[in-house]
Write a protein that binds this DNA or RNA. Sequence first.
DNA 1: TCCATAACTTTGAAGCACAAAGTGCTTTAA
DNA 2: TTAAAGCACTTTGTGCTTCAAAGTTATGGA
Lengths: 98, 98
Amino acid sequence: MVNPIGALNKIFDSRIRLGVMSILVVNDAVSFNELKQMLELTDGNLASHLNTLEQAEYIKVQKAFIGRKTNTTYLITELGKQAFKAHLDALEKMIKGI
Amino acid sequence: MVNPIGALNKIFDSRIRLGVMSILVVNDAVSFNELKQMLELTDGNLASHLNTLEQAEYIKVQKAFIGRKTNTTYLITELGKQAFKAHLDALEKMIKGI
DNA sequence: TCCATAACTTTGAAGCACAAAGTGCTTTAA
DNA sequence: TTAAAGCACTTTGTGCTTCAAAGTTATGGA
């Protein structure tokens, strides 16, 4: 038998990063504050997890202006979508014992 | 919106514990060595994760004899089954954005 | 008698998660 | 026109988790 946990993505071991991806996979552009509120996190904690996801190129940042005010939103990348899907597939296989 | 990651079980944040549960949920009694081989872990690492699961009463140990030799197998408990299922449900809800 | 195997426990290092506090910029209220 | 408050961070420090490696105890086989 092949080790079932080997196919899991380490980046998604973290519940918070998993939560961020779950949100971004269905929502096109979500702001820092929306994520913060949805996931009930402190700024620092959220920022560091977003940073990890950005380093992995699973998400990207978009800085825009709403009137004069800057607004930062986060989007999932194509690579991020693939990695997330692959992780979920691996999870499913593991659970179902395939 | 309710925080989607709040319903996840911290015990199952670990890929190894998730792997153990996935195996035990479909296999009735699995030995220490079988788990060790399937998951490709060192003795100590496996033992400590099994210990965490046992503390939570999600698994239990069965010491039996094969001839004169002792044989240790692990089984999932009813509580373990419930907790595992609840975790998977929470995961699914989170991912599907329910 | 010696070695191997099973099933651990202990130890220690490395990495991670998290809160809290600090930063720089901007906007709004007094 | 300060002052306060919000946004989006970065930095810092503590405590927890993970893991490998080594040590332990017991048994079985050569």
